[in-house]
Design a protein around this nucleic acid. Structure first.
Lengths: 124, 124
DNA sequence: ATCCTACATTGGACTTAGTCCAAGTCAATG
DNA sequence: CATTGACTTGGACTAAGTCCAATGTAGGAT
């Protein structure tokens, strides 16, 4: 556990937000100015492998990192401003995929992304 | 309707696949050698606005274009090789998001991505 | 048929997000 | 103290996509 890794972990801790890798880097630099982008990418990659952090790719742009990895949830994304909220739908989408629709795949995970407009953006 | 647009439409027609923009460009060039990447991007963008083609972003890599825009469906992605299948789960995930979980958003769409291993990749 | 104009196309420069790698740093161990 | 191995750095590189000024062209007006 090096200073760099601690800083990256700290950035993701607490804040219940969805940061891009660059945002993580920017905040990490604020605490430890000489940290490099490569290290942030490495550390984020490790946190993802460890299951401590989730990668979320809601749009074509940058991946986002979600520290809320321990309670399963899905995402609601604003098509206008890109805001992201965690949501907890009822039901189990995995159960909604019949065997006949699995094509022999071993299905291990499902990701649900709701899209719409946030109150701000819909008040055009 | 120019020659270039016709070619892009032809490439997406028929084939029930999920091509990246570059793959579309490569196939378009085979039919009309002087077509430029920018035109392919423009045309794909228009087809998406017209609702003729869907953009699918299953991973961090390139967007894919899905000509099967008229029958709603979701996707099953192989974590190993990236293969994509269209699937039709039962149930309606939109109904599974209670008002209390909508945060005032106007929710208009939902995208479900199943992940797993295809028969080939799971036979390590 | 010819001209005109608005739109489409081109190609290249540019941007963003991310990966890769060789070299440097550091701490612990023997 | 020297060795080892893991971690970090910075910069070069790549992939995917966007932007823009210059050029070409489709199709209506005359």
């Amino acid at each position: 556990m090096t200073a760099q890794r601690r800083v990256v972990a700290e950035v993701l801790d607490g804040e219940h937000v969805h940061l891009t890798a660059d945002e993580v880097h920017a905040r990490a630099v604020a605490k430890l100015p000489e940290i490099s982008r490569a290290t942030v990418y490495n550390t984020l990659g490790e946190l993802v492998s460890l299951g401590e952090v989730l990668e979320v790719t809601t749009d074509k742009r940058a991946k986002r990192y979600d520290p809320n990895a321990h309670r399963p949830h899905h995402h609601l994304v604003c098509a206008g401003c890109g805001a992201i909220r965690d949501v907890h739908p009822t039901g189990n989408p995995l159960a909604d995929l019949p065997d006949s629709e699995r094509f022999g795949f071993t299905v291990s995970d499902v990701e649900v992304t709701y899209r719409g407009l946030c109150p701000n953006c819909s008040a055009t």
